[in-house]
Amino acid sequence: MVSEDPAERPAPAVRPEVWETYGPADLSAVPVFAGGFINFGYWHSVDLDGPLSQDDRIRSEQDLYRHVLDALAPDGGRTVEVGCGLGLGCALALEEYGPATVTGVDIHPQQLSRAREANSPLLAAQPRRLRFVLGAAESLPLGDAEFDCLYSVEAVQHFPDLPAFAREAARVLRPGGRVAVAGFFSVDGASAPEERLAGLLETFASGLDIARPVSRLAEALGEAGFGDVRADSIGPQVWPGWDRWLARLWAPGTWPRNFMAAWEQRILDYYLVTAARL
């Protein structure tokens, strides 16, 4: 495990696709990601048979964070989010779950600037409980055993090295600390998932999203020193609502609507992966 001074680490390299999408293109400002959250949503509390409002969409994004944080129960603990984006999930965790501290880590300096601006009142009011730092999932600028909980919401599809992320999660968590990762992965046993996903979805074709089976993350966590590793599909709570929301902007057959097709064809699914540091 890495144990050098985190402050001495160089700035992380950012893949070009990630740099453009989360920097100049500013995905958080795209209307489909209403409210500044950047996730597909957890739609269990939204009536999908009726018209969808922007409030419904924002609630779905918040509820995905709540579903992840419920798995961690970070009350009173030191908590870190990897891939924090605008930091709205960090603020939600701080305000609703009572952790001692929340640290948001993101690889993109422009996202961190936006996070500090979006959360400036909270940072001013509680400077010792909330901070944002620049770093990569595979080389976290954090101390050994510094945290009780680590979570990541819909960023893992961009991580180029899952074993390195798992090792870093193990390093920064104390023994008994918990990790929860929500994101989309190829389905174990699917035939030629990389090629099929690239044919259906522009984000996989461009290299922004990386196709890996969920078992690869589960195995990496086990090898890094985690136990009680679980990978649970939450696809039924994600894909139908996401597709209904996309239907407001895209017609059937356009590539964003193919997320639903990929799920129905059992190529892609959405998972919550949890584990405990041994």
Rank of each mutant, 00 (worst) to 15 (best):
residue 32 V to I: 15
residue 46 V to C: 13
residue 51 P to G: 07
residue 216 R to F: 11
residue 23 G to C: 10
residue 162 L to S: 08
residue 127 P to M: 13
residue 274 T to I: 01
residue 21 T to S: 12
residue 35 G to T: 01
residue 222 G to M: 05
residue 217 L to Y: 00
residue 79 T to P: 02
residue 38 I to R: 09
residue 15 R to N: 09
residue 230 R to S: 14
residue 53 S to G: 13
residue 207 G to L: 06
residue 222 G to P: 01
residue 271 Y to E: 02
residue 16 P to R: 00
residue 36 G to V: 00
residue 199 G to N: 10
residue 101 T to R: 12
residue 2 V to P: 12
residue 143 G to W: 04
residue 241 G to M: 08
residue 234 I to H: 11
residue 98 G to D: 11
residue 218 A to Q: 06
residue 228 D to V: 00
residue 200 L to P: 02
residue 113 S to D: 15
residue 184 F to W: 14
residue 220 A to L: 00
residue 110 Q to Y: 10
residue 4 E to N: 14
residue 216 R to Q: 14
residue 122 L to D: 07
residue 38 I to F: 11
residue 24 P to F: 05
residue 130 L to E: 06
residue 101 T to D: 06
residue 143 G to T: 03
residue 41 G to Q: 06
residue 61 E to G: 12
residue 237 Q to F: 10
residue 118 A to Y: 09
residue 37 F to N: 10
residue 206 S to K: 08
residue 120 S to A: 11
residue 152 S to W: 01
residue 79 T to K: 03
residue 92 L to I: 04
residue 80 V to M: 06
residue 219 E to I: 05
residue 68 V to I: 13
residue 255 W to H: 15
residue 50 G to N: 03
residue 223 E to V: 04
residue 82 V to A: 04
residue 223 E to C: 03
residue 110 Q to M: 15
residue 261 A to G: 15
residue 26 D to C: 15
residue 101 T to Q: 10
residue 2 V to D: 14
residue 115 A to G: 02
residue 212 R to D: 09
residue 221 L to I: 00
residue 85 G to I: 01
residue 265 Q to F: 05
residue 257 R to M: 12
residue 156 V to G: 01
residue 203 T to C: 12
residue 33 F to D: 08
residue 55 D to P: 06
residue 136 A to S: 12
residue 65 Y to K: 07
residue 106 D to R: 12
residue 191 S to K: 14
residue 19 W to F: 14
residue 140 L to Q: 01
residue 30 V to Q: 15
residue 138 E to Y: 02
residue 271 Y to W: 05
residue 107 I to F: 00
residue 24 P to W: 03
residue 69 L to Y: 09
residue 82 V to S: 02
residue 232 D to G: 11
residue 176 G to E: 09
residue 34 A to M: 04
residue 33 F to C: 07
residue 195 E to S: 15
residue 158 H to V: 10
residue 270 Y to P: 00
residue 156 V to T: 02
residue 71 A to L: 10
residue 80 V to G: 05
residue 247 A to C: 06
residue 18 V to M: 06
residue 70 D to P: 07
residue 269 D to V: 01
residue 249 L to Q: 14
residue 33 F to Q: 08
residue 93 A to C: 13
residue 108 H to C: 14
residue 80 V to L: 08
residue 2 V to M: 13
residue 39 N to I: 05
residue 89 G to K: 08
residue 118 A to M: 09
residue 3 S to P: 01
residue 94 L to V: 06
residue 69 L to K: 14
residue 43 W to Y: 04
residue 27 L to A: 11
residue 169 A to F: 00
residue 183 G to Q: 07
residue 269 D to Q: 09
residue 252 P to N: 11
residue 128 R to E: 13
residue 204 F to T: 03
residue 198 A to Q: 13
residue 20 E to Y: 07
residue 41 G to V: 00
residue 173 L to M: 01
